[in-house]
Amino acid sequence: MSSSDIFIGETIGTAILILLGGGVCAAVTLKSSKARGAGWLAITFGWGFAVLTAVYTTTALSGAHLNPAVTVGIAVKDGEWGHVPVYFAGQILGAMIGAALVWVAYYGQFRAHLTDPEIVGDLADEPIEGPHDGTPKQPAGPVLGIFSTGPEIRVVWQNLATEVIGTLVLVLAVLTQGLNDSGKGLGVIGGLITALVVVAIGLSLGGPTGYAINPARDLGPRIVHALLPLPNKGGSDWGYAWIPVVGPLAGGALAAGIYSLAFA
């Protein structure tokens, strides 16, 4: 695979991933959406199908990593780091494009939601707590959960551990079940397996933090949330933003270590 193929594939694939994954979050969350209130099952299966669609669309171009943690896991396994920056760049750019497209698709719903006095008033008045000490922080935006993840209970070590554990499961499944014949990306059956694993992680481990398990999935859309001209959007919770980046990267590297010790 050439660097241009990798960059294009990861940009397109991650944009599709975030468009469909963020889209289901918008559908469930926003006022005047026909799917509003559909719940956690809709979100977890929506993200799983988003992974499936994105992988099958772009695996021939880039191997469809679509996740810096997967890229790190494969690089640690193989000891090959030359294309890692290209993967990262495509993934972050694609995630930002996908998040912006969610805003376009739900433009009217975003405006209706963020100008509703009951919704904005109730949510904007709720402070984010510090590391389980009750310290008031910047309020989370009422639509931030459409773009990025956040914990239900803010305990830094637990939130970090949850992201490490969830990503470890994902990347270990990719390394043992999901790679194509070259071992550089996801194969056809591997894409289906990976999508089902993402659903399983969401159902089983998604409750504490919203299961980012993908640094690009969280960071790219969080940047877009900060930049978009959304009325009454509130803060982007940058104090938490490092956890869904560091946790998944650590989980991906740990999964590769376990793979090398137990399976290689």
Rank of each mutant, 00 (worst) to 15 (best):
P215I: 13
T194S: 00
G166D: 04
A212M: 02
Q138S: 10
G257Q: 11
V76N: 09
A216F: 07
L175S: 09
L168Y: 14
S182D: 15
N232K: 04
H65E: 11
P136Y: 09
K233H: 11
L249T: 10
A54E: 02
A195M: 04
F147A: 03
E152P: 00
G141C: 03
V86C: 05
A89P: 01
H113A: 05
L172N: 05
Q158V: 15
G98N: 06
N232Y: 04
L17K: 05
T149A: 03
W238M: 00
G166S: 10
I18K: 02
R222P: 01
T57C: 08
G98H: 07
V198R: 00
P208Y: 09
F45I: 15
V70Q: 10
W103V: 12
G252P: 03
H225Y: 10
P85G: 01
H83S: 13
L192W: 11
V120F: 13
N180S: 08
L175G: 10
V28P: 01
L175H: 12
C25Q: 06
A100N: 08
I12V: 15
Y211M: 13
V24M: 02
T44W: 11
G94Q: 08
I8M: 12
A140Q: 14
V246Q: 07
V197R: 04
D133P: 01
S3G: 04
V84I: 14
A35G: 09
G202F: 07
T209G: 02
A99S: 11
V197P: 00
M1N: 06
G9T: 06
G207F: 15
V169N: 09
I16E: 13
P215E: 13
I6N: 02
T149R: 11
T176D: 01
H225D: 07
G21C: 06
A253Q: 13
K233L: 03
W157Y: 09
A15D: 02
V28S: 10
E152K: 12
A54Y: 10
G141R: 12
V174W: 05
D125V: 00
T59V: 07
K77W: 13
T44F: 03
V70N: 08
A99P: 00
G190P: 07
L160C: 13
V55G: 00
V198A: 00
K184S: 10
G252C: 09
G239N: 13
V224C: 06
Y107S: 15
L186N: 07
L41M: 11
G247V: 05
I128V: 15
L249R: 09
S236T: 14
I223Q: 03
H83I: 07
V84Y: 11
G187C: 08
L249H: 10
H83W: 01
D78N: 15
